[in-house]
Simulated assay, not measured.
Amino acid sequence: MDEERNGEQKEGDGKVRIRDRLKHFTWAWFTSTMSTGGLAIALAETPHRFKGLYTIGVIVFTFNLILFLALCILMLTRAILDFPRFKRSFVHPPESFFFGSFWLSISVILGGIQLYGLTQGPGGAWLVAAIRILYWIYAACSLLNAIQQYWVFIIRTPRHPIPFNPSWFLAGYSAMLTGTIASLIAPSQLPEHRVPIIVSGCAYQGFGWLISMVLIVMYIIRLMECGLPPPPVRPGMFIPVGSAAYTIIALIGQARAIPPSYGYFAAHPSSADTLQTLALFVGIFLWIFSFWLFAIAVLACVWAVPHMGFALPWWAFIFPNVGFTVATVMLGRELESDGVLWVGSVMTIGLVAIWCFTAGMCVRAVMRGEIVWPGRDEDKDM
């Protein structure tokens, strides 16, 4: 093993240079920003609060913004250093699967702007308008991305079959999170803007959920036929957890944001109460399914602990479980259950702990050359 590593380090002057490492900076790095931004959202939504928690959340949100900009600069550097490889990264799996994490990172940034700038912050009317415009831009881009990515996978398959991987979910996730953003920003909008946001958010959430259901079936069949994935990428098994969890958040949030005295809802006075009740019980219906997927992923990772070397899919420990945590909190609020709310708070603490551990392992892996290194990243088969 040592001889193999030494052999990989030999290149021209005897070592892999920084510029050569940057050529292997892949889209999977944006799983770190979608998870860090998701953590900021979880901190904003946690029910049991203390003085200074808002400040902590703002620090995490700001750090994520800086990290996102840094990753964009590094990706641009990669494009400049090796444009052919960069171009192939959009169409060559497994790296191309992770392009959705770039859009998901933007979605959690939009959610953070809403929560820390408007819902809990001092933002004014200009920010309300700005977040609405950004929402519609993101909605268009995320849908185009989902169409483009799945089309690329479909036309490539007859020549080069693609083994199933949980990262397949990310392209659909990028559109599905439009529904989650809608549920967050709708309450701060005027009724004439709120209703289109709620309706579009419901449509996007339905699209993302149905795509996820198809992929969940393929995912379970793959597990039953081929067994568990390699230990380093088993954290990716948490990705399906978020499909049901973020659907719970979107449905309950959108139902609660309905303006009862405007448009369709004014003409049908009982519709708002009916949809709120329906959203709650559909959420309960989906929660146990999300928990089942969560439990399977936990068992798979615990089973492989001695052999789990770090890989960027480790960030999947966080982002899907942010959705699971916030969904639990929202159900607790709707049911007015203090016990469920405490479960949500404990889950938030767990997210903070696993984020710290994952971040530390990520830095360690970079320093040791385990990632961002020729032949060791998602682009190794290009």
Rank of each mutant, 00 (worst) to 15 (best):
T157N: 10
L170I: 15
A297E: 08
L299Q: 02
K23R: 15
L43K: 03
E378I: 00
S142K: 03
Y264E: 08
D338H: 15
G201K: 02
Q114K: 02
E192Q: 11
G208D: 04
D2S: 12
A327H: 05
V326I: 15
Y116D: 06
L74M: 10
V233S: 12
F97K: 00
L134D: 09
E370A: 08
Q148I: 12
Y54K: 01
S337I: 09
Y54F: 15
F50C: 12
S188H: 08
G121T: 07
A295H: 07
S212W: 00
V199R: 06
M224Y: 06
K10T: 09
P84K: 09
A244P: 03
I248S: 13
Q205K: 02
S167I: 05
L251H: 06
T36N: 08
P47M: 11
W151Y: 14
E378F: 02
S270M: 06
L251A: 14
A359N: 12
I133E: 10
I288F: 15
G360P: 02
F319N: 10
I154A: 12
E225L: 12
N321D: 14
Q148S: 13
Y262I: 01
M361N: 07
H92V: 10
P232I: 03
T178L: 10
C202G: 09
L190Y: 07
S35R: 04
A175K: 01
L43V: 09
R156D: 05
F265P: 11
S200W: 14
G323L: 09
I252F: 09
F310C: 11
A297R: 05
I258L: 12
Y173S: 04
A245Y: 10
C202K: 00
A266Q: 11
E11Q: 06
K87M: 02
F102T: 05
